[in-house]
Design a protein around this nucleic acid. Structure first.
Lengths: 396, 396
DNA sequence: TGGAATAGTTCGGTCACTGAACTTATCCAT
DNA sequence: ATGGATAAGTTCAGTGACCGAACTATTCCA
């Protein structure tokens, strides 16, 4: 049970600072008066809070706004482009990616280095990841910006309470304390290090992509080596009690299906995973598969349709359970969307109980494979945006 | 998106009032000084807040506490037994139940009236429910207590945003605004009326039963006419975006199973529901089945084992998705627990990925069929406990 | 019987928000 | 050009809620 905390005036300021910052983030170019109207705070309070945020270089005052009509012009406020940046790292199975984003979520730097991380000694891989981190920190120095937080995406189960990477099947890692190991190997600034599942970070990247217009409740499914899912509800990641939530790859979709590496039978991964689709379609790789689909090859289309049905079966259960109104296809599935969406939708229509009152949308992600790193980096800055007072306190 | 609200001093008081009340609720007989130590607030603040809570008859001052050692004795604080009560109503398929609970959750009055509500005219049923409500209100009057909130449990999908009962399959009701209809037919006090799914309320009752010792994260599964599930995470009900969450009965557990009333195939309800178990076991009713199980009849044990395996398959997916550490069996399943738990556990062990680090517990609910009404009534008082300032404001 | 320990109250101080008055800046009609 | 209307932003006294320290009240025990 989380320790309940007493509230005081500082709590109020904390809350309102975040409120003001969120208003600025959601409508860049807004004036202090606009923020006051949006948040319900008085102009006096907003002025005071904005001044503090500007002092911490979280908000930027871009001079008078342009607006028709009478009256004095307000000053345009926006998130400070030179404010603290978020640094993301992804330890993939065959690559290490780093990425630097500013407060608005814009990518300032990105780098993907191929690396065969699978079943290599853990310290060796971590040393290389640390080197990438150091390089990215140098990049931040060259841009003249501070790093306010670090996010690390890993392909495995991360325990939320401890931050421990419990198990990464495709790396064959067990119980690695990633933040501690990285701190040992690189001179990292004294900022928070978030570790999380790669699929969850990808879902968050999807949430934050394209401003504030997208859905705030969805399941993001990405088919890469395994099948990863990230659940976003109310604009927040839902990852369960330990942080192990969102596992969809081993969803028991048919009891007498093929045996899976996890020991069980009929896991979704064995019926709708990328490898299986390619095999059924007789395609060499994803590019080949897409060519065959475009050419209208029956076998390819059939393979994708079948995967769509299995995926739909699993997702209908997810929707019935969580009552999420949208499914976003990412990774490999994003490419297959045109052929995958219809059978998926059909299955959802047939099985979702709440369907008649709120049909489930099947959307396609525009983000590529960089989704996870970007999500990791963006998570770091979102931590600051969500609680600017904590960040400001850490400055002194 | 919920409108963000500015915080002020009143917000602080609100938060701290709830904090203090929660401390009193969790350790009855605690003194003001104890509350201060527990919450981190100063004695001065606690005194002021407690006085207000006593004024609203939410807290009761039971005189000096008994304790060995030197020093002045504190005064025992506890939730006021004569404070506002919660009134619960359950519109079942073949009964209407009402129940009155005090702030501590203790049942003060309970009544179950058999009624054939299935496919009878909706207004007729509602009129009878309203009559039951009026009777329960009279009971509250006789006890000399006020009703501070009403909870209504229904066997169907309730839309959280509107409070509308969208669809109750076993009643064959569609789009009924239950609170409005009840207000039209009975003289209800001006208090909030919560409408919710019966399985969800049962899960909440389970959460609140037995003090504060039970798990705060679990899936509550009850097998009655259908299969209902309620998900509790972090001590709160998780019911999804629209409130349709927690539907487990139509979990697609095998693609080529028997056809279900919902139109799909292989729904859990058709493989592990009460009717199916009885039929497979060749038992006339639940009592008969239990007799056969106790007698060690193979056919009965086999039927329950099979249901356990199907249930385990579905629940393993739930656990992988939501990462909940416990499954609580309620309703019919509670009675079958001794025979059901082992196959269920085996299935979970085989399929839950996070299992090795946090094995899933399979528990048994001690509550009977009254779980849902009690949960509904308790929800009403919990609303008050969760935000006592709102309740106090409504008094004036 | 007085000292130590603990519970609860009183009261001045601090901090963050509010509301109203005020200053600054812009448009527009005269 | 000029004054009135309009709007943005600032200043400042006022309010409310918590904190801390001093104080009172009660109990045990040597």
């Amino acid at each position: 049970m989380t320790q309940p905390r007493p509230a005081g005036q500082h709590t109020v300021r904390r809350h309102n600072s975040a409120l003001v910052l969120a208003a600025v983030a959601e409508s860049p170019g807004i004036s202090r008066a606009g923020v006051a109207a949006r948040t319900g705070l008085t102009k006096a309070t907003v002025s005071s809070l904005v001044d503090r945020l500007i002092g911490a270089s979280l908000v930027h005052d871009a001079g008078p706004e342009r607006r028709p009509g009478p009256g004095r012009r307000g000053t345009s406020l926006s998130l400070c482009p030179s404010g603290p940046h978020g640094l993301g790292v992804e330890i993939g199975v065959d690559y290490v990616a780093t990425c630097l984003v500013d407060l608005t979520g814009r990518t300032r730097h990105e780098r993907v280095r191929p690396a065969e991380n699978r079943s290599r000694p853990v310290p060796e891989v971590l040393a290389e990841v640390a080197a990438e981190l150091t390089a990215a920190l140098g990049e931040a120095g060259a841009l003249g910006v501070a790093v306010g937080g670090i996010g690390v995406a890993v392909p495995g189960l991360v325990e939320a309470s401890t931050g421990l990477l419990r198990r990464a099947p495709n790396l064959d890692w067990d119980d690695v304390d990633v933040p501690a190991e990285l701190r040992d190997r690189a001179a990292l600034p004294d900022v928070e290090i978030l570790v999380g599942n790669e699929a969850n970070f990808a879902a968050l990247a999807e949430l934050w992509a394209g401003g504030h217009t997208g859905p705030r409740d969805f399941v993001h499914v990405s088919g890469e080596i395994g099948i990863g899912a990230g659940i976003v509800i109310g604009g927040e990641l839902f990852d369960g009690v330990h942080g192990f939530g969102g596992e969809l790859g081993h969803f028991p979709v048919t009891p007498d299906g093929p045996r899976c590496t996890c020991g069980a039978r009929g896991c979704l991964e064995r019926l709708a995973g990328q490898d299986v689709i390619l095999e059924r379609a007789g395609a060499a790789d994803l590019g080949d598969l897409l060519d065959r689909l475009v050419a209208g090859e029956d076998r390819a289309a059939g393979a994708v349709r079948e995967a769509g049905r299995w995926l739909g079966t699993a997702l209908s259960a997810v929707v019935n359970l969580l009552d999420v109104p949208a499914v976003v296809l990412g990774g490999t599935y994003a490419h297959l969307h045109p052929w995958l969406a219809d059978p998926l939708r059909a299955e959802l229509r047939a099985r979702v109980l709440g369907g008649p009152w709120s049909p489930v949308e099947v959307l396609r992600s525009d983000l590529g494979t960089e989704a996870a790193v970007r999500g990791a980096a963006a998570s770091a800055v979102r931590t600051i945006l969500a609680d600017p007072d904590a960040f400001m306190a850490s400055l002194s």
